[in-house]
Design a protein around this nucleic acid. Sequence first.
DNA 1: GATAAAGTAGACAGATCTGTATCTTTGTCA
DNA 2: TGACAAAGATACAGATCTGTCTACTTTATC
Lengths: 189, 189
Amino acid sequence: MKRTEKREHLIDVAASLFNRLGYHAAGIDLVIAEAGIAKTTLYRHFNSKEELIVAVLKRVDAQFRDKMRATVESSGNNKGDKLLATFDFLEAWFKQENFHGCPFISAAGEFGDQPSVVFHEAAIHKRLIVAYLEELARADGLPEPRKMAEEINLLHEGATAVAHITGDPTVARKAKNVAERLIRQAQAA
Amino acid sequence: MKRTEKREHLIDVAASLFNRLGYHAAGIDLVIAEAGIAKTTLYRHFNSKEELIVAVLKRVDAQFRDKMRATVESSGNNKGDKLLATFDFLEAWFKQENFHGCPFISAAGEFGDQPSVVFHEAAIHKRLIVAYLEELARADGLPEPRKMAEEINLLHEGATAVAHITGDPTVARKAKNVAERLIRQAQAA
DNA sequence: GATAAAGTAGACAGATCTGTATCTTTGTCA
DNA sequence: TGACAAAGATACAGATCTGTCTACTTTATC
């Protein structure tokens, strides 16, 4: 592995461990063992565990939104149902072996007491998601795109939480079904 | 304080700390200091921290559903809008000073790796909530009450997550607004 | 008032946590 | 090939974690 790849690999490994075990439960020693690097190396890249967590969240955010975008764009956007395609992305996510709920919601739960950079990073991600949904609602030609984006986002968050707790990925389709009704109703109005 | 009350008070204090700081971040030493009891006493009541967490979740579940029930029953259930009243309960919850997201979602995030009794307890709570919502849907005379309960539950979970991240309690009303449309649509069909 | 149960205080064990210091090895690039 | 920066290995510091142990005190109950 190249030197420049080490940092990226470290972030990926840390993301996986934090996602699986939680941010407090996954210790630095475990991260470096899994990543196959020395502790010195980790602390050369990041001054603290908190900085590592923030880097992880930034990367997960970027990957998450990229994949969602890819799903939407590759879907048959014949009609104007881009918003609905986001639920197909969710379903694929829920079906993954390593799905353990939303990493940002978990982060907010573990670092939500005092104003924390970790919590803040999670909040940024959520804002970006809603902004993207609004963009899709606009592209779909829906009235009140901001309102629609917030409503679709409610269904996203709800589906993610339920899929996590129940382990049932089909909740994505149930949420999509609700979204369909909302969109149809908005179009009729 | 009476002896028998100590255990209850301990659970309440632990619930507050776990909710605020997280289950891993809040240590036993902090719990006993805040509760004003000796460590020996805690470990006489609970064999491990995990047992304490489970006791906390059981209590929070009972209180949560009791309050939701009370809100529904005290609301003007003139028409048949019991399901809608649950969103008023959510809004009141979101407005509380110590609202830090759903304790069960956080617990699932921190103990979701291997099959854990903590995760299991969270799953039980969520099943009970959906069962209650189904009961309300039935009382409201809605068709397909199970399906409606699951859809309302999606909105509950979504609103809770969004309220946690954004800190904006008015999302409860937005979710209620969506629920109104779903219910009206179901009644019309 | 005696007795047994429960609580307090606090030291302690042993593990684990984050983060640092030291020294050696390795990869990169001129 | 030689210089230099990055990574490795590893011991360590100091804090904190869960859980135990001992010894003493309070409290409830008969």
